[in-house]
Measured scan of single mutants.
Amino acid sequence: SIKEIEKEEIIKVLKEVNFNKKLASEILGIPLRTLYKRLKEYGI
Protein backbone atom coordinates (compact mmCIF):
# COMPACT_ATOMS: atom_id res chain seq x y z
CA SER A 1 0.00 0.00 0.00
CA ILE A 2 1.02 3.62 -0.37
CA LYS A 3 1.16 4.03 3.41
CA GLU A 4 3.61 1.12 3.71
CA ILE A 5 5.83 2.59 0.98
CA GLU A 6 5.72 6.01 2.63
CA LYS A 7 6.53 4.51 6.03
CA GLU A 8 9.51 2.59 4.60
CA GLU A 9 10.77 5.71 2.81
CA ILE A 10 10.54 7.80 6.01
CA ILE A 11 12.44 5.15 7.99
CA LYS A 12 15.09 4.86 5.26
CA VAL A 13 15.67 8.63 5.14
CA LEU A 14 15.71 8.94 8.95
CA LYS A 15 18.41 6.26 9.15
CA GLU A 16 20.45 8.02 6.43
CA VAL A 17 20.43 11.30 8.39
CA ASN A 18 20.90 9.68 11.83
CA PHE A 19 17.32 10.54 12.79
CA ASN A 20 17.75 14.29 12.20
CA LYS A 21 14.04 15.03 11.70
CA LYS A 22 14.54 18.53 10.29
CA LEU A 23 16.95 17.27 7.64
CA ALA A 24 14.75 14.25 6.90
CA SER A 25 11.73 16.49 6.30
CA GLU A 26 13.77 18.61 3.85
CA ILE A 27 14.95 15.51 1.96
CA LEU A 28 11.40 14.12 1.85
CA GLY A 29 10.07 17.50 0.73
CA ILE A 30 7.47 17.71 3.49
CA PRO A 31 7.09 20.20 6.34
CA LEU A 32 8.61 19.13 9.66
CA ARG A 33 5.14 19.25 11.21
CA THR A 34 3.86 16.76 8.62
CA LEU A 35 6.81 14.46 9.31
CA TYR A 36 5.98 14.43 13.03
CA LYS A 37 2.34 13.67 12.16
CA ARG A 38 3.41 10.73 9.95
CA LEU A 39 5.78 9.40 12.63
CA LYS A 40 2.93 9.40 15.14
CA GLU A 41 0.48 7.94 12.61
CA TYR A 42 2.86 5.10 11.65
CA GLY A 43 4.11 4.54 15.19
CA ILE A 44 7.73 5.24 14.29
Rank of each mutant, 00 (worst) to 15 (best):
S25D: 00
L14D: 00
T34V: 14
I44P: 04
E26V: 14
I5G: 11
A24T: 05
G29L: 04
V17W: 04
F19R: 03
L28Y: 01
K3Q: 12
E6K: 09
E9M: 15
I10C: 04
R33S: 13
E41H: 06
L32A: 03
K7T: 07
S25A: 15
V13Y: 02
S1L: 10
I11K: 06
G43P: 03
F19V: 01
K7R: 13
E9P: 02
K21D: 03
P31E: 09
K12R: 15
K22Y: 10
R33W: 12
S1G: 14
E9K: 15
I30S: 01
I5Y: 13
K3P: 10
G43T: 05
G29V: 03
E6P: 09
T34M: 12
R33T: 12
K40F: 11
S25V: 04
K22P: 06
E16M: 15
E26I: 15
L35V: 02
L28W: 01
E6T: 14
G29C: 04
G29M: 07
N20E: 03
I10H: 02
I10Q: 01
K3S: 12
R38T: 08
A24D: 00
F19P: 02
K15Y: 10
E4F: 09
I27T: 05
I10G: 00
I10N: 01
T34S: 08
E8P: 04
G43Y: 06
V17F: 05
I5T: 13
K15M: 12
L32M: 08
E9A: 14
V17H: 06
S25G: 05
I2W: 11
K12C: 06
R33P: 07
K12L: 07
N18L: 08
K22Q: 12
Y36C: 10
Y42Q: 03
K37E: 15
G43L: 07
L28C: 02
R38A: 12
R38N: 05
F19S: 04
G43M: 08
V13K: 03
Y42I: 09
K12N: 09
L28S: 01
V13M: 04
I2G: 13
I44Y: 10
I11N: 04
K40G: 06
F19Y: 14
E41T: 05
I27D: 01
Y36F: 10
K40D: 07
F19Q: 05
L39Q: 01
E9R: 15
V13Q: 02
V17L: 06
E26Y: 12
R33K: 14
G29E: 05
F19C: 07
S1W: 06
K40C: 08
E4Q: 12
I44W: 11
I30D: 00
I11V: 10
S1H: 13
K21T: 14
E41Q: 10
I11Y: 09
I30V: 06
F19W: 15
L35H: 00
E8T: 10
T34G: 04
I2Y: 06
I5M: 15
A24I: 02
K22M: 10
P31V: 03
E8D: 11
K21H: 14
Y36K: 15
K40H: 13
A24Q: 00
L23D: 04
L32N: 01
I11M: 14
K22S: 08
Y42N: 03
K12H: 07
T34A: 10
L39K: 01
E41W: 06
P31S: 15
L23H: 07
S1Q: 13
I5P: 12
I44L: 12
T34Q: 12
V17I: 04
P31G: 08
S25Q: 02
E41N: 05
R38M: 15
I27Y: 06
V17P: 00
K21W: 14
Y36P: 01
I2C: 08
L39C: 06
L39R: 01
E4D: 14
L32T: 04
L23K: 13
